[in-house]
Write a protein that binds this DNA or RNA. Structure first.
Lengths: 209, 209
DNA sequence: AATTACTAAACAAACGTTTAATTAATTTTT
DNA sequence: AAAAATTAATTAAACGTTTGTTTAGTAATT
């Protein structure tokens, strides 16, 4: 099924509204109005509200996987370098798709099983396996320590970035950065966060005494 | 206003349902049914659905503040020890009130200003100020490094714990820990997380080369 | 006797979805 | 290439539920 302009407009509008007001806090009429389409078009194109959410998830999770796999198998970088690339890639992805990421955060918080819930779990499982592979590479080459808790490491990376993305508006106010414009602010916080995470990873992973 | 048994039942039920299904995903009738009270009682006692949420927030944020303040002024502990106590206290609090914490997470994710939104922001600002104070103590005594980004440090602590709490059910499955019973599992993960966070904090804060 | 706690029923508004009718685009037939 | 037939896109209105809240009346407590 090819995606027309109108379908894309619906999906993008829905993404923003779901992120800001939650899935249940957003009505079909809200979306239709903001995307400037008739209410019936959403059922017509996607079938239902939930299937619209699914469509958004499928579109967003499509490309991410392949990217990660090839990066890990890259022979030209050291394990620690790869880990740093991973951090920057993950950050970039989430900054670029912050609305979608916020939807994902609220969906995985909900304690109910839905089509998207299992989609999220699958993605996470795959990602964790890949990172585990990368950690093992580093351990074999002697670059990394022996006892690494991969799930906890992932939790720190994802959790820290997540915390920043989900509470951006708070962070800015808490640190008196309102005078910076949006792009300036984003650049600033990205640089800071990247350095921060890398130093944490180095401290946890690195074998130097 | 004193809280009767029935009001408490409503608040506790609401807390769990809000956490599991989201605020908008939970209806007044859901709460009334599960708490075994008449639908009208919720409006009668709390005024509205939103005021019920506010009541839950006020009850939960009441005691936390005083506790933190006295802990930081404690002269018998070193700055690093205090930081470790802070980590354990924060973890304990969130584990004990995981439902409430999940509600808070979804509320601070929403990009809209509500009574609870400003309540959250206030609490965060206060907490961050207190931690900043503690960091300065450590810097004056020479225990901590000079350049510490307090907001980022907080983000890592809260983010990591948050990530664990909001995705507990995932974590358990991802690490094949289903055979452990609930209390056993909680004990296990708490111990792990505590060590993990402390080693991160030590790496970031400590002045030893 | 008067206030408080509680209930079942009703309220209007909003919800996601469907229907039936109309317009636009595409394909088939002349 | 023009006309007719067919399919797809779009609309306004209506559907039946569910939503949060209120009302008017009853039972319990003070």
């Amino acid at each position: 099924m090819e995606i027309t302009g109108k379908q894309l407009a619906i999906m993008e509008t829905a993404e923003q509204l779901f992120a800001d007001n939650g899935y249940d806090g957003t009505s079909i009429r809200d979306i239709a109005h903001q995307a400037d389409v008739n209410v019936a078009m959403i059922s017509y194109y996607f079938g239902s509200k939930e299937k619209l959410l699914q469509a958004i998830f499928e579109k967003r999770t499509e490309l991410w996987r392949v990217h990660l796999e090839s990066m890990i198998e890259d022979k030209s970088r050291s394990p620690m370098e790869k880990m740093f690339v991973l951090i920057d890639n993950y950050m970039q992805k989430i900054f670029d798709q912050s609305c979608f990421h916020r939807i994902m955060a609220q969906q995985q918080m909900a304690n109910q099983d839905s089509p998207v819930a299992s989609l999220i779990l699958d993605t996470k499982r795959r990602n964790q396996d890949l990172v585990k592979k990368l950690v093992q590479q580093g351990q074999r080459s002697g670059d990394f320590k022996k006892n690494i808790d991969v799930p906890l490491l992932m939790m720190t990376m994802m959790g820290t970035i997540n915390q920043l993305i989900t509470t951006q508006h708070h962070y800015r106010e808490l640190n008196n950065l309102q005078d910076l414009d949006d792009t300036e602010y984003k650049k600033h916080i990205k640089k800071k966060l990247s350095t921060h995470l890398k130093s944490i990873f180095k401290a946890i992973l690195s074998n130097e005494e």
